[in-house]
């Protein structure tokens, strides 16, 4: 066995060397940093990392911090509406575009272009349009509708929906593109069979076609979920967490505690919570999507 292994490595030595950069990135940049982040979350680190051990003290503090509670609650609301609206809107757009419409490629281009732009840009644009002193509200007042109110970005009750609006604008094209690609892959004979069976078109989509597109649906939901968990840029550009703490999100909480509040222990505790949540939620999805069918058996 030992001799076999040596011979195998010798024979493929160049391939081993070629994979060293990847190994280094995985071991140091991914696993190492992750481990150290988790380790720091059990220390009392403030401005500089410390090597002491304070148990779950940082986690207790974290969940006592109202800003963190707000952040988590906000993320939950944003994630729920964002995923729901993006998915429904993206599917509808794809299905409608699939009805043999004229100027199909124009529609496709229009619905997907926001996805090519940065979250910063998305945040800034919608900040202006929803800004009561400048945007739609101001314009409507100018036109004589003085009772018109659209102040989402400065209204603590509505600011999350402003963010949802901007992110939906940014992301629903992605769902459309993936679902449309899937629809185009559906065997035309399936459609013929449903016409012989006399199944109404909407029923075909709901009962037959969309279930067939499960991989595309999961892929788009995974991509959107990742972008929501990582969500930072759009909030910074649009509201910077305000008004007050009404639109704080976990990613921003961590960044603030790392670089502005010099509270590394608390920040790493928060990032560990995010890490565990993501792994728990994503693990089954990742497993079924990426590892069930492994590459070529060599």
């Amino acid at each position: 066995m030992g001799a076999d292994l040596t011979r195998h490595v010798k024979r493929n030595i160049v391939a081993y060397i070629a994979l060293l950069p990847m190994a280094a990135v995985v071991i140091f940049a991914y696993l190492g940093t992750m481990a150290w982040s988790v380790r720091l979350s059990f220390s009392s680190s403030k401005l500089l990392p410390r090597n002491d051990f304070v148990g779950f003290a940082q986690y207790v503090t974290l969940f006592d911090t109202s800003r963190w509670q707000t952040s988590l609650g906000n993320l939950a609301i944003i994630a729920f509406f964002f995923l729901l609206i993006c998915f429904v809107l993206g599917c509808l757009l794809a299905i409608f575009i699939d009805q043999n419409v004229r100027a199909e490629s124009l529609f496709r281009t229009v619905f997907l272009y926001p996805y090519a732009m940065s979250f910063v840009v998305a945040g800034l644009i919608w900040q202006w349009i929803l800004n009561p002193d400048l945007g739609i509200q101001h314009t409507m007042h100018g036109l004589g509708f003085s009772g018109f109110v659209l102040d989402w970005v400065v209204n603590p009750q509505m600011v999350l929906y402003a963010i949802i609006l901007a992110t939906v604008w940014h992301g629903s094209g992605l769902v459309m593109a993936l679902i449309l690609a899937g629809l185009r892959g559906v065997d035309t004979e399936i459609w013929k069979a449903t016409r012989i069976d006399g199944i109404p078109a909407w029923r075909v989509y709901v009962s037959i076609v969309l279930p067939m597109l499960r991989p595309m649906i999961i892929t788009s939901l995974v991509l959107l979920s990742i972008s929501i968990v990582k969500m930072y840029d759009v909030v910074v550009a649009m509201t910077n967490g305000g008004p007050g703490t009404a639109s704080e999100v976990p990613a921003k909480f961590i960044m603030d505690n790392l670089f502005e509040r010099a509270n590394i222990g608390l920040a790493t505790a928060a990032s560990t919570v995010m890490l565990v949540t993501v792994l728990l939620v994503m693990a089954p999805v990742i497993y079924s999507q990426y590892f069930r069918k492994s590459g070529r058996a060599s």
């Binding site: 004979e189 013929k192 069979a193 012989i196 009962s207 037959i208 279930p211 067939m212 499960r214």
Partner: peptide
């Protein structure tokens, strides 16, 4: 009733 080359069965049912 019609029978197709690709069978055209509803794959999720």
């Amino acid at each position: 009733g019609m029978v197709f080359q690709s069978y055209a069965l509803y794959p999720t049912m």
